[in-house]
Computed example of a mutant assay.
Amino acid sequence: MTADEYLAFLEDRAPVRSRMLRAAVICVLGFYLACFLFDLWLLGDVTLLSAILRFGVMLPIAIGLLFYINGRHPIERKEVAAILVALLANISWCVILVSSSSPGVLTYYYAAASFQMAVTIAAASPFRPALRATLFTFCLNYSAIWFLEGSTPAYVIQHLAVYMPTVIMTLFASYQLEVEAMTSHVKVQENEALKRELSRQNKDLARLSVTDPLTRLANRRGTEMELARLRTESPQMAQRVVLLVADVDHFKAFNDAYGHGAGDDCLKRVARAMRRSLPIEAHLARHGGEEFLAILADADADMAPALAESLRRAVRQLGIAHGFTGDRNKHVTISVGAACGAVEAEGDFDRLLDIADRALYAAKADGRNAWRVSLENEAERVVA
């Protein structure tokens, strides 16, 4: 895990660490105060000192720590504060035991391992701060042990035999907990990355399913989705639609003469030219082969001639040479048929498309490179 990933891991676990820290402080505080009963039982000569340090000093500090943990502070500072309070509690406890002349003090001092567990595990901090706190606690406890009533080198060695396994096991547990948390974090991040990648791929697939791979325009399915969107999201706009059907003139002859590669390039250039000539809100699609379809919603019927002429002129101005048209046009051109009406119901589009197709055939019959708009029973056309 890189440094940035580790910081992200710590930040991600901050809420959990804060909750665990608060619970640990409450539990350890309760245990620490309950140990006053042991002080009464084993250390009768320092009862007053114990009460002052436990209830007069440590209890207010621990309450202040809880308020601090509940505040809006970085979790790292909360954990450091908790460790410092635990170390202060350890110091207070050592003062109590060192001040006692009771013979039970040596037995009681084995409880030093509980402070070890508190600073290593209960604080729920990352392993490195826990390791530093462990070393400090170890040094503190084994500095104070020599001042206990009746302490001998043999007792210190015996104490170490009990204390060291606690140190090793708690450090190992702290390290293991952090490793498991980091592993879980990495897996969650990997799963999230996979979900994002899957979502992106699904979006790409959805986009590809409605996109013609050659011209990058919408395909027939894309047109169906656009019609469905109009009907559901903009029913009023679906009441007034201009539908244009454009067909590349003599395209088969162009393909046969110049090759399919040139034919594909021709269709791509024609598609780009038509897209630029239409309003940005217009829907343009490849309807199949060399036929294209455009839909402009919320459009008046008198806009159809201008739109049709705009398409025709845009393609003619490309100047793509076509010497096999068999007529006077020696460049790639299109013929356009247009119809106006509503697409509110399922059958409306097919009816409108049939009207536009008839207008397209009329334009081709008139010599191509032309357009015809069907306006009820009227017909308008222009040939360049």
Rank of each mutant, 00 (worst) to 15 (best):
R328S: 14
L307A: 01
I355M: 12
H322P: 03
R368K: 12
R312A: 01
G323R: 00
D366C: 15
D348F: 08
G323T: 07
T333V: 11
D327K: 07
A359K: 10
V315R: 08
L311G: 10
D357R: 06
M303Y: 06
S335E: 07
D354M: 13
A321K: 14
K330Y: 11
H331N: 15
W371Q: 00
F349P: 03
D350P: 02
G326Y: 11
F349S: 00
L360G: 08
K364L: 02
D350T: 09
A359L: 10
A363I: 02
A345V: 14
D348S: 05
A359N: 01
A345P: 03
A304F: 04
D302Y: 02
A339I: 05
G323M: 09
G319C: 10
A370W: 06
L375Y: 13
E344Q: 12
A356P: 03
H322A: 10
E346W: 10
P305Y: 01
V315E: 06
S374H: 13
G323I: 11
C340N: 09
L311W: 02
N329E: 14
A314G: 06
E376F: 14
R312Q: 02
L375A: 08
A359F: 03
A321H: 12
E346V: 00
I355P: 01
R351K: 13
R368V: 14
V332K: 09
G341Y: 02
C340Y: 11
H322D: 08
N369Y: 06
V343Y: 08
A308H: 07
P305W: 05
D366S: 14
I320K: 13
G341L: 08
S335Y: 00
L318P: 05
A308M: 08
G326E: 01
S310A: 14
L375I: 04
E309V: 07
A308L: 06
A359H: 03
R368Y: 07
W371D: 04
A339M: 00
V343N: 05
Y361H: 04
V336K: 06
L311Y: 09
G337W: 01
N329D: 14
L307C: 08
S335P: 04
G319N: 12
I334R: 06
Q317L: 15
A338N: 01
D350A: 13
A345Q: 12
K330S: 02
D327Q: 13
A356D: 03
D350F: 10
D302W: 11
D302N: 12
D348W: 03
L375F: 13
A362Q: 11
D302K: 14
S335I: 10
A356Y: 07
R316F: 05
A301K: 10
L353R: 15
A362F: 04
D348Q: 02
C340K: 02
R313M: 11
M303F: 05
V315N: 03
D366L: 01
D350H: 09
R358W: 08
L318Q: 11
F349G: 03
Q317E: 15
A339Q: 07
R372G: 06
A363F: 01
D354Y: 14
R313I: 15
G367D: 09
L353W: 00
A338H: 02
A338T: 04
A359P: 06
N369C: 05
V315W: 07
S335K: 04
A321V: 13
D327C: 12
D348K: 09
A359W: 01
A338C: 03
N369E: 08
G347V: 12
A314M: 03
